[in-house]
Amino acid sequence: MGGFVGLLSGIFGVGGGFLMTPLLIMIGIPPTVAAASDSNQIVGASTSGTLAHYHLGNVEFKMGILLLIGGVAGGTVGVQFIKILRHMGNADFLIQITYVIMLGFVGIYMFVESLQGLRVSKSIEVVAVPKKESKYAMILKKLPWQTNFEKSGTELSIVLPLVLGVFVGILAAIMGVGGGFIMVPVMVYLLRMPMHVVVGTSLFQILFTCINVTIMQANTNHTVDFVLALILLIGSTLGAQMGAKISRRLKGEQLKIILASLVLIVMVKMLMGLLLKPEILLAFVGGH
């Protein structure tokens, strides 16, 4: 299990919590322990993955740090927001609906866009016609504090990653996940970073998010099962290395289309969970 989730982590730059936590619950681990121990093992997998991508020249540290700062600020806002919602009694509904809408939107967009990209690259010979700049690109250029991001080959204002980091942080706090699933499309489409650099940079950012979650869970809920995390770690750190190598061999469009399919599968599973009557009408409090 660790190896499989690590492989996904290395290939796509996602933490794998969306897969590992339900798998652990399925084999009988209590949800709170599953979620906390999963965070702990993601620390190992993302360290291994970040290192592998760093050696391949795929980590944009400057961008990662900016997104992280925004993410921490957004996460803090998101936690307060969820507290208010819980108090009002609508939190769970909002979390699940946000999940389905976000995953559905991101998955479909990525899938269609990368499918078009694959078709174009196969059938049409690229003619060097200067592209008209989009309005979005023009707005980006007008923003202050433009900085050069070497690995991505782009020049952007530092305001943008900070603001997007806040946005992802809020969503991640509401949805109770590390945010890799949202961060990857944000980096690809809004920050215009190349897919391979996105994977490495996302892993770098996830590493810090999961360090924070592991320590918080250990301190507040005492739910980190170190032995379990260690067993998963062995597989996931190796898997992350293999994943990074596989990722390098795949084209950006191919990576995007596989990730989009994964996102859509998770979305459909969540939607089914909302529409079909559950086998048991009670669940333990806790988990993602």
């Binding site: 190992g44 291994s48 050696h55 005492h222 770690l233």
Partner: peptide
Amino acid sequence: AFNHGTLYGVLAVLVAIIAGLVTGVIF
């Protein structure tokens, strides 16, 4: 874990980072 929660969390994180780094170096 129950008596020294924060320290336990920090150590769990450190072990995970070391495991990740060692695997990275081996590869």
